[in-house]
């Protein structure tokens, strides 16, 4: 059973919105020629997905620590932000079926009795247009994001 869960989410078809997914993919699959750093140690699970859905709640409730990675619209493109999260039952859309990070924690808390310590890392996006490309500033910030995740996961 992993004790740390890393979830990168966003839409990789909308440029920088996919930075979390790209980061998660890099953490989960490793090409030695591209990236020489060691594989995620045991006890760490990595998920890449488009949205935070309620299906993640049981997985979240089962770990000690949750690390989330996403893009954000505010700030200078490529800037890394970090904040700790507490559960909060915020409804973000009555026709939709995905959750915001604090909502996911709240769902874990309400339905399964516990929510892990959680941190959200976001990278300010420069472009959210159609396209699979990260803008240069965000692409340049990716190694920094990965390094921070590894640091957090090791701690």
């Amino acid at each position: 059973m992993p004790n740390t869960l890393i979830i990168g989410y966003g839409n990789p078809l909308r440029c920088d919105d996919g930075v979390g997914v790209r980061a998660a993919e890099r953490l989960a699959t490793r090409d030695e020629e591209v990236d020489a750093s060691p594989s995620p140690p045991e006890g760490i699970a990595v998920i890449a997905c488009h949205q935070l859905t309620i299906e993640l709640a049981p997985l979240v409730a089962a770990v000690e620590r949750l690390i989330l990675m996403d893009a954000c619209a505010e700030g200078e493109p490529g800037t890394l932000h970090e904040r700790n999260l507490a559960p909060a039952a915020l409804d973000i859309g009555s026709l939709s079926h995905h959750l915001d990070p604090r909502g996911l924690l709240a769902a874990a808390q309400i339905l399964y009795g516990r929510a892990p310590a959680a941190v959200l890392l976001t990278v300010s996006g420069g472009s959210f247009d159609y396209g699979e490309a990260l803008s240069p500033a965000v692409a340049a910030a990716l190694p920094q994001l990965l390094a921070r995740i590894r640091q957090l996961a090791r701690a």
């Binding site: 309620i54 299906e55 709640a57 049981p58 915020l90 409804d91 769902a107 309400i110 339905l111």
Partner: peptide, 17 residues
């Protein structure tokens, strides 16, 4: 909303998941 539902009917919400 989904949270109101979870609070009131946790079994049903878990069933759905």
């Amino acid at each position: 909303n989904i949270f109101g539902l979870m609070q009131k009917y946790p079994q049903l919400a878990r069933d759905g998941i």
